[in-house]
Every structure is written in structure tokens, then in C-alpha cells.
């Protein structure tokens, strides 16, 4: 058998040590996830009540609402990252720029072609999903066929990130842009919480999509196949899973989620530059690591938690340190519990 033609140490990166045990550690995921999910919900509720008591209803509730908005786009992005890592063992460093791509697709549809925001959102989702699928067919599949090592794939992902981001900048320019929506229109509810109408619309879409994805993963055949691949590729193949189809589907889902997340950021933050997705990438990593890399449910929870924590922190410290809260979470997780809440082992 001819040995593969690439630096041996390139294989090292994401190859699990041959000394790792084969018994699945995600066995029993359903029950423990549900239990932990409920525990987390309980914890969040407790924190909200404490914040209301300490800071007053309106500030605490507003921060929580803002946190849910941010948490939704973090979760949408992080779930995609987790799915791709779980099924492909690939850390998609270009994922942040998928968000940018989706946002700018929506910008094109909405601000340029003046299509309604819902349509623009749909376009963003489809376009980014296709981007993911095209990259899989054009790059990732051929590279896997050539037995490319982890380092190669990582650097290709980074290269793609730069190509996508700067391609968008060449096409659309670096100046800040906004969606063509009425930014003054806002909705007030639950005793004083204010959210922009567009923001609220897209958040609701986002939350619904997250729930649908969670259901899809646990109940549908595709979801089960994705989880089977995430556990053990060779075993899944032997069990008759069409890995090619599942992988394309994974990219479609991850891309679509990222596109939606990008639109949500556009709606929530208001102004965009081509750099925003890349700037969010570390936060997306934080959410994924917090939840347990490769675990989609964990990424969902991690994303929401990250958004909430960041916004809650603004009740106590200057808002410009918001991002630092994300780093702190990332670093603490890596230091204390690299597996995150629900993931596979990160230590050697």
C-alpha cells in the first residue's frame, strides 16, 4: 500500500490519539442532554430573578431580552460550527465569514433590490447554504479523497475565510452598510422591554429554526445519521449511512443557519462591515467550546448562554468590555473543562 503523500505531522491535528477508547462517550446523549438542558433553564431563570431583584425589572429584563437576541445568533452560528466539526472533524475557520456572506446577501436583496426582509432572509439562508455545499464539493471532498491532513484542512479553511471576507469587501466595499428597514419601529412588551421590529422578527425566526434543528437532530433520519457520523465514521459507514449525502446535508444546514445568523446580526446591530463575521468567530468558538465541540445541542445552549452572559455583564461593567466576557468564558472553559458542557475530550 502506497503511503499517503503529505507531511505525516499534518495528520496529527484532529486525528484522535490511537489510545483513545472506542466506546462512545456520547452514548446516552438523549437523556443526559434533556436533564442538563432543564438544569440550565432553571439556572438561567434563577439568575434572571436575582438580576431583577438587584438591578430592577426593566434593566434586567431588557438585558435578558438583548441577551436572547445575541444568544440566538451565537447559537445559530455555533450549531453550524458544531455540526461541521462533529460530522467532519473540521474546525471551519471560515464560519464567521459565512455569517458575513449571509448578511451581505440579505443586504443585496433588501437594501439594493428592495425586497421585503423576510424574502431577503430566505435568500440569505439559501445562498449561504449553497456556499457551504459548493465549497464541500469543490474543496473539502477532493481534499478528503486525497487524505489531506488536519493542518492542511485548517489552513485551507483560514484561507477561505480570507478569500470570502475580502471578496465581499471588493464587491461591496468596506464602508458600513445597513438593511433597508425602518430602524425606528420598535415593539414594547412585557412591561418595558423594547426590541426593534425587524430584530424581533428575525429573532423569532431564529428561535423557531433552532427548535426545528434540535428536533431534526434527535428525531429525523438525517439527524440520527449526522450523530452517528459524529460518533464514529467507519462504524456509520458499515451501518449503511451514505456519508456523502449526510455531509452535503450538514453543510447545507450549517450554511443556512449561518446565513440566518448573519441577517440577525444585521438586524440587531444595525450597521455592518465585511469584517464583522470574522470578529464574531472567536465568540462562536467560545459558544461551541462551552457547549462541547462537536455537540450541536451543547453549541445551542452555549450560544444562548454566551449571549445572555455578555448582555448581563453590561449591567455591571462598561459595555465595551462585552467581547472580553466572551474571551474570558472561552479561556475559563479551556482551562477548567475543555470538554465543555457536553462534548468529547479535549485533553490528550
Amino acid at each position: 500500500m502506497r503511503p499517503p503523500r503529505h507531511p505525516p505531522y499534518l495528520l496529527m491535528l484532529t486525528t484522535e490519539s490511537s489510545l483513545e477508547p472506542t466506546p462512545s462517550e456520547t452514548a446516552g446523549l438523549g437523556l443526559s442532554t434533556g436533564a442538563r438542558g432543564l438544569a440550565l433553564l432553571g439556572g438561567v431563570a434563577v439568575v434572571v430573578l436575582i438580576l431583577i431583584a438587584v438591578k430592577g425589572y426593566q434593566p434586567a429584563a431588557q438585558a435578558t431580552a438583548n441577551g436572547l437576541v445575541a444568544g440566538t445568533y451565537f447559537a445559530l452560528g455555533a450549531v453550524g460550527l458544531a455540526l461541521v466539526f462533529g460530522v467532519l472533524r473540521l474546525v471551519n475557520f471560515a464560519h464567521g465569514d459565512f455569517l458575513t456572506f449571509g448578511a451581505y446577501a440579505a443586504l443585496l436583496a433588501n437594501a439594493f433590490f428592495r425586497l421585503p426582509i423576510i424574502v431577503a432572509t430566505a435568500i440569505a439562508i439559501v445562498a449561504t447554504a449553497l456556499l457551504g455545499a459548493i465549497l464541500e464539493l469543490a474543496i473539502w471532498r477532493p481534499m478528503r479523497a486525497r487524505r489531506a491532513g488536519g493542518l492542511q484542512l485548517l489552513l485551507i479553511a483560514i484561507g477561505l475565510a480570507y478569500v470570502i471576507r475580502n471578496g465581499i469587501q471588493i464587491a461591496a466595499g468596506a464602508e458600513p452598510r445597513s438593511l433597508h428597514v425602518d430602524v425606528t419601529s420598535a415593539v414594547s412588551f412585557m412591561g418595558g422591554i423594547r426590541l426593534g421590529t425587524t430584530e424581533l422578527t428575525v429573532v423569532l425566526i431564529g428561535l423557531v429554526v433552532l427548535v426545528l434543528v434540535a428536533i431534526m437532530l434527535s428525531v429525523s433520519r438525517l439527524g440520527k445519521e449526522m450523530r452517528a457520523l459524529a460518533d464514529n465514521v467507519s462504524l456509520a459507514e458499515v451501518a449503511g449511512v451514505d456519508t456523502g449525502r449526510v455531509i452535503i446535508s450538514t453543510w447545507l444546514v450549517a450554511g443556512g443557519l449561518a446565513g440566518l445568523a448573519g441577517v440577525l446580526v444585521a438586524a440587531a446591530v444595525g450597521v455592518l462591515t465585511p469584517q464583522f463575521g470574522f470578529q464574531l468567530l472567536l465568540s462562536l468558538f467560545a459558544a461551541t467550546v462551552l457547549g462541547g465541540i462537536g455537540n450541536a445541542y451543547g453549541a445551542l445552549a452555549g450560544g444562548l448562554l454566551l449571549g445572555l452572559t455578555q448582555e448581563w455583564s453590561t449591567l455591571f461593567i462598561d459595555p465595551r468590555w462585552k467581547l472580553a466576557v466572551g474571551f474570558a468564558i472561552l479561556i475559563l472553559t479551556l482551562l477548567i473543562r475543555p470538554n465543555g458542557l457536553l462534548g468529547r475530550p479535549a485533553l490528550k
Binding site: 466506546p23 462512545s24 462517550e25 446516552g28
Partner: peptide, 11 residues
Amino acid sequence: DLVKGFGGLRA
């Protein structure tokens, strides 16, 4: 009396 477990499994 050496013991090592992974997740739910005692290897």
C-alpha cells in the same frame, strides 16, 4: 483493584 471508566463504561 485498578479501575478506569469512560463515560458510562468501565474498561
